[in-house]
Amino acid sequence: MELKQLYREIVNDHNLTPSHRGKMENPDIVLQGVNPSCGDNIYLYLKVKDGMIEDGTFTGVGCAISQASVDMMLDNIIGKSEDKALEIAENFMKMIKGESLNENEVDDLEECALLSDISHMPARVKCAVLGWRTLEEMLK
């Protein structure tokens, strides 16, 4: 299967049937993320205990890229430490800006690395990073 086709299928799957969509009961941290340039708007909910992200969900509206990206992000960070989640977020931001990553950094991004081509679509970068920016604000 061609990489672009795989990318489309994964983004569509995360957008149409997200694993982490829904309002969380009794989250430890909640933060709204907004992209005013296109109207994407999410709420990110996290359960964090002893520095570990135990669970995460999101609600909101937006384009397929913003919704898929936040769902993929949650797949990646649940079960990881806050510090590791911030490291992964930093690497995602570098990738989206078109900066080079080493093999370990790409591996840490897991499925999120499939969004690397968005760096060539400036209008979509803000969509892809909405959940990640919100996560960084929550954990810093």
Rank of each mutant, 00 (worst) to 15 (best):
residue 6 L to G: 09
residue 110 E to F: 07
residue 47 K to S: 07
residue 39 G to T: 00
residue 74 L to M: 09
residue 10 I to C: 14
residue 133 R to E: 10
residue 40 D to W: 12
residue 75 D to Q: 15
residue 82 E to W: 08
residue 58 F to R: 07
residue 130 L to V: 00
residue 34 V to R: 14
residue 20 H to F: 03
residue 118 I to C: 05
residue 108 D to K: 11
residue 117 D to N: 10
residue 28 D to A: 15
residue 59 T to H: 15
residue 75 D to S: 13
residue 129 V to D: 03
residue 76 N to V: 00
residue 12 N to E: 09
residue 37 S to M: 10
residue 137 E to H: 05
residue 39 G to L: 12
residue 56 G to D: 00
residue 94 K to H: 07
residue 121 M to L: 10
residue 103 E to V: 06
residue 102 N to K: 03
residue 35 N to A: 11
residue 55 D to L: 08
residue 116 S to L: 09
residue 13 D to E: 15
residue 53 I to W: 03
residue 43 Y to W: 05
residue 89 A to E: 01
residue 20 H to D: 01
residue 23 K to W: 13
residue 102 N to A: 00
residue 57 T to E: 14
residue 130 L to D: 08
residue 97 K to R: 14
residue 55 D to P: 05
residue 108 D to N: 14
residue 12 N to M: 13
residue 134 T to I: 02
residue 74 L to A: 02
residue 23 K to M: 12
residue 40 D to Q: 02
residue 111 E to W: 09
residue 19 S to A: 11
residue 43 Y to T: 11
residue 42 I to M: 04
residue 91 N to A: 09
residue 40 D to Y: 07
residue 80 K to H: 02
residue 22 G to P: 04
residue 27 P to G: 10
residue 132 W to C: 03
residue 25 E to N: 09
residue 107 D to T: 11
residue 5 Q to D: 10
residue 33 G to A: 10
residue 41 N to S: 10
residue 44 L to K: 01
residue 80 K to A: 03
residue 50 D to W: 11
residue 44 L to R: 01
residue 45 Y to D: 12
residue 8 R to K: 15
residue 61 V to Y: 12
residue 80 K to L: 04
residue 101 L to E: 01
residue 124 R to Q: 04
residue 41 N to R: 13
residue 17 T to P: 13
residue 140 K to S: 13
residue 64 A to I: 00
residue 33 G to N: 05
residue 112 C to I: 02
residue 83 D to Q: 15
residue 86 L to S: 06
residue 41 N to H: 12
residue 53 I to A: 14
residue 4 K to D: 14
residue 38 C to E: 01
residue 70 V to S: 11
residue 78 I to F: 11
residue 39 G to N: 00
residue 58 F to C: 02
residue 135 L to E: 12
residue 8 R to F: 15
residue 98 G to I: 07
residue 47 K to Q: 13
residue 14 H to A: 06
residue 17 T to F: 15
residue 10 I to W: 10
residue 49 K to T: 05
residue 131 G to H: 04
residue 57 T to N: 14
residue 78 I to D: 07
residue 67 Q to E: 03
residue 131 G to E: 02
residue 67 Q to L: 15
residue 36 P to K: 13
residue 15 N to Q: 09
residue 21 R to C: 03
residue 128 A to M: 15
residue 16 L to K: 13
residue 136 E to Y: 08
residue 95 M to H: 12
residue 59 T to Q: 14
residue 40 D to T: 01
residue 48 V to D: 01
residue 75 D to H: 15
residue 54 E to I: 15
residue 102 N to V: 01
residue 105 E to F: 04
residue 70 V to L: 09
residue 63 C to V: 02
residue 115 L to M: 08
residue 140 K to P: 14
residue 137 E to S: 11
residue 39 G to D: 04
residue 52 M to V: 12
residue 136 E to P: 11
residue 2 E to G: 08
residue 56 G to R: 03
residue 110 E to H: 13
residue 55 D to Q: 12
residue 39 G to C: 06
residue 32 Q to E: 15
residue 109 L to W: 04
residue 63 C to H: 00
residue 88 I to G: 00
residue 135 L to R: 02
residue 38 C to M: 08
